[in-house]
Write a protein that binds this DNA or RNA. Structure first.
Lengths: 253, 253
DNA sequence: CCGCCGGGTTGACGCGGATCAAGGCGGGCG
DNA sequence: CGCCCGCCTTGATCCGCGTCAACCCGGCGG
């Protein structure tokens, strides 16, 4: 389950980077890779998928990929870096909706309103694949695997929304948050026990509906309980089973 | 904005009932009606939509429409009645995920896992249109309007998940909940100011992540502030503007 | 060099809402 | 009818976490 990092000493693993993907092989860790495979790498349809995608970036930390109210024209797959999505209410209070890692897709919640309902902000230097949505829809009509994939992506995000649901203690939320990140890194082939937190304590707190001080306290407690090792934003999970146990009420299964 | 009810005295309006819809006109208030219209009522495609839909019911209060783990084969549009979806963790604690009114669709979050990740339980005597999902997908490939509609339904539900996000006071949550219900009833042509709460206080509390006692107290306070009139589960909004104001941090716009 | 500033940690205190408890109401059933 | 059992309401108490405050640290600009 551990490191597929080529160079995996703790202080240095920077934010994982998805396969670069040349024109022929595309991004192996990308959310659409299975659609591509299903469609067949060599078929002419894949050329069409290549055609509607555009590599964009870099975006530096705190730069916007899109903003609330922008007209919806495309969805974005993270190639490298990390993104937070957030809403800002009219009193200026921020609400973090989610964090997106390499291989994950942002912008799906803009399909219905046809405008982005939130901001997307880079937390790291980040690169993206931009998929024109009209073109993608048209392709989906012709290639069932692409349509299916879009349905699955949307449905999957519906399911993950329930992570922050429920009135749970700060410990439960934090444990679930860490295990969720671990699982998502693992799903893309990165280490599930050692990774970098690209987001500030404040962002984590906001996402989990806690105060930043509480996040700090819980992490300190987890450390003193030997559940994790943490230095700044470098994290190692020392007892994933205990953490999973703690967060089980919030986690799938 | 008020009653389209044929008979609209307060104590009696039972749960609103969507158009029955004969074979030709289908359900006017249904979530798919615009897809049908876009496809054209008279085209042969509509016959196919009729073909993959099946009217099911009645389900009585507390009966399951589907259960956690059931294989995913279809989505359901509520024709009449009300449904709650919920997850039950292994300690037996219930978590209410949402309430669904006539014209709304349940089951979309099962597409990705291919099994229902939650229970759907009738709160009232309820009827449904059952849409075979494989058939629906196939149809979506041939009729862009149907595909677009499915994307929109999924995306819309993504947006509504953020209602319960955020750490907000019990008053804000309750006000937002009431206005959300009002808006959804209004969108289907029912009264936006007077309706029946099909769910118990306990269910509301669970959904809003409050204790049942808190829900009771907040409703009592709203009544004493002349914001609402409430008798048992019959509700009238006396000051929707004030309620919207209260809940604004949670509500769209 | 120093001062500043944003992010992080830690302690002290208070409040909102959970919990515990008691009682009312209505509906189903023996 | 009378009992029981959900559901709802209201009051009393308690506690987790938000808030306030102080301080540390590293980076950056003057």
């Amino acid at each position: 389950m551990d490191s597929k990092h080529p160079a995996g000493r703790l202080p240095e693993p920077p934010n994982p980077i998805a396969d670069d993907g040349d024109e022929a092989h595309f991004c192996g860790t990308c959310a659409f890779s299975s659609a591509c495979i299903a469609a067949g790498y060599n078929k002419p349809e894949l050329a069409q998928l290549q055609c509607l995608v555009e590599h964009v970036g870099p975006f530096r930390a705190s730069e916007h990929i899109f903003r609330t109210g922008d007209p919806f024209r495309a969805i974005f797959a993270v190639r490298s870096g990390t993104v937070k999505t957030r809403m800002v209410d009219k009193e200026g209070r921020e609400q973090v909706l989610g964090f997106y890692l390499p291989g994950e897709v942002i912008g799906l919640n803009a399909i219905y309103p046809e405008h982005f309902p939130c901001d997307a902000v880079a937390l790291d230097t980040s690169f993206f694949c931009r998929f024109s949505f009209p073109a993608m829809s048209a392709l989906a009509s012709r290639i069932p695997a692409v349509q299916k994939h879009l349905f699955r992506l949307l449905s999957k995000e519906l399911g993950s929304a329930s992570l922050l649901a429920g009135d749970h203690s700060a410990d439960e939320r934090m444990a679930a948050f860490l295990m969720d990140l671990a699982g998502r890194y693992a799903a893309r082939g990165f280490s599930a026990t050692r990774f970098h937190l690209s987001m500030s304590r404040g962002d984590i707190a906001n996402y989990l509906r806690l105060a930043a001080e509480t996040v700090s306290r819980v992490l300190s407690r987890f450390r003193s309980q030997k559940l994790i090792r943490i230095e700044g934003r470098e994290l190692e999970l020392l007892d994933p089973d205990a953490l999973r146990q703690l967060g089980q009420a919030l986690l799938p299964d």
